[in-house]
Structure formats: structure tokens, C-alpha cells
Nucleic acid binder design. Sequence first.
DNA 1: ATTCTGTTGCAACTCTGTTGCAACAACCCG
DNA 2: CGGGTTGTTGCAACAGAGTTGCAACAGAAT
Lengths: 148, 148
Amino acid sequence: MPFANTEIPGRFQTLLAERGIRMTGQRRAILNVIETAKKHLDAGQILRRARKLDASIDRSTVYRTLGLLKRHGLIDELDLMHLEGEAHYYERKPDRGHIHLACLRCGKIIEFDSDLFESLKAQMEKECGYRIAVARLEVGGYCSKCRT
Amino acid sequence: MPFANTEIPGRFQTLLAERGIRMTGQRRAILNVIETAKKHLDAGQILRRARKLDASIDRSTVYRTLGLLKRHGLIDELDLMHLEGEAHYYERKPDRGHIHLACLRCGKIIEFDSDLFESLKAQMEKECGYRIAVARLEVGGYCSKCRT
DNA sequence: ATTCTGTTGCAACTCTGTTGCAACAACCCG
DNA sequence: CGGGTTGTTGCAACAGAGTTGCAACAGAAT
Ligand SMILES: [Mn+2]
Ligand SMILES: [Mn+2]
Ligand SMILES: [Zn+2]
Ligand SMILES: [Zn+2]
């Protein structure tokens, strides 16, 4: 997310419409916040940003919409090692899964792509007989600047 | 954990003593619960079991002890896809990291070891310049019995 | 035994997320 | 375009997980 400006804005709306999901002003606001985010946001941050577009939006609507997007596989939910508090973070589900590394000292998050990760997912499906819906690899460590 | 009976009981106590950590009755009870657990436990379950050994233990002591063990790298914290509620789960940190697959329908958790996973961690350390302290790979999907 | 210091129980609290319900607004159909 | 159906919303109350300040307490070392 701190990357990928390759997203068509309104993508979520299209995908949800295709599946016959009713579109509302509140949902448009929330989708827009998530689609245009340049970093990982938690539910509280999404709420605050969405309220700038539609001041009446309630917390419960944000959670319900996040639930909807999760069920439809359009977003991923992350812990990011719960570096501050217990909130979960959200991001558009990328075409290709990526890994999150969090620095336990400075909090920097970096994202990482790897063919090895793709192979590993394939191996799990094959050897465990699971059909994978979501795979989260999150790493805590110390970035080059923070190593003691 | 649903496996690994290869642990020396009292291992945690030794490791903490070596690091000059004060040992108390409450801690002994909690460590004992975690060391002998045959499945992943959340803080509430750990509390209930620990109270059978020392009835006066408080919730906050469990959380403080879990924090201690996490800081010392003796346990891992897991989401297990938050299949029921928002609690986190705990297990002894194994010598070799393993992957958790959760079935989104029946809740079955399976654990999986892979050389690919070890290589991937090595690759991340090398390419990202992070020193990895903890790596969590958690997968949600559908087990062979639950596939539609 | 005494002292020092880290630990505990308690109670109150914060924060994240959920739910029942009545009012409301999309969307479909004619 | 209305008008009805049904999914969605705000609200307010709730539930659950985890945290904190503090006074009493208990390890460990002398
Ligand atoms: Mn979590
Ligand atoms: Mn495990
Ligand atoms: Zn750092
Ligand atoms: Zn299953």
C-alpha cells in the first residue's frame, strides 16, 4: 500500500456491484478511504477519514463494511505485530501476496514480495490439502538502522 | 504444540533464572500451564488453568507474565485467524518455526513445517536487512473435509 | 532477620469490536 | 417516475481483551 498507485479508483464499487451488493453513500466513503490510503489504516483511522466525506458515519458501519470487504476477499486484515495497541490494520488485497516486516524499535513497516512465498503457499495447499483463502506472513525484527 | 512432548518441563524456569528473573509461585503456575499445554491457549484459558494451581492468580498477572515471556522470546503469540473472538493465542516458541493453517469453516488448526519457510526467512533477513525476532505465518482456508 | 526491589491483586479503566432495533434509503418493478 | 421490498444505517448499550496506578507483599541476597 505505501506503493501501488496502480489501482483503479472505484474498483471496489465495480466488484461489489457485480456481486449485487447494494451501494450506499457511507460505503462509497469508506471504500474511497481504503482505496486511496498510502499506509495501513486501522478501523479508527478509517472512521476519522471517512467522516470527512460523510460526517454522520458511525463506527459500527465501518466495522460492518470491513466485514463485508473481508468476506468478499477484497481486503486483508493485519496485526503488524500490534506494535501499538490491539487494533487490526487493513489494506487492499494485492494480486500477489506480500509479506510485512515491522521494526520492533522504530515501527517502520516494509513490504516484501517473494517467489519463495508463492511456492510455499503452493506447497501448503498440496501437502495439507487446504484450499487457502488468506495467507498472512508478518515478521517482527530490527531494521538496519535500529539494530543494537 | 498439539505435539512436541519433547520439552523439558521447567525449561522456562531455568532460562529465566539464567537471566536473573525473579521466580514466584504465580509465575511457576503460569509457566507450567504453558509448558504442558497440548493446544494453543488464550490468556483466559491460561488464567483458568493456572488458578487450579494457585487460586489467587489475577488476570493482570497472566498478562504481565505473557509480556515477560514474549520479551524474552520464549513464547509466540498467534491470531489463528481470530476464528472466535479477538483473543490471542500462545505457545512455546519451537526451535524451528512452524506455520499455522486454520480451517475457516470447522476451526481445525494444523501445523506445518517447511524448509521453504526457513529459506524464506533467510531471504528476508538478507534482502531487507532486518534481523528477524519473530516470524508468523498464519493461513486461513478450507480443509479437505470442509471444501464445498 | 533485614533490606531492597521487583511482583502481585485489586479495581478501575481503555480500547476494540459487536448487536438489537427502529428509522431509513437502495434498488427493482411496473 | 412513484411505491414496496429488503438490505443498510445510526444509535446506544454491550462484551471482551488487555492495561494501569497503587499499596501490600514476597523474592533474593546480604
Ligand atoms: Mn490480532
Ligand atoms: Mn503452533
Ligand atoms: Zn527500525
Ligand atoms: Zn474444516
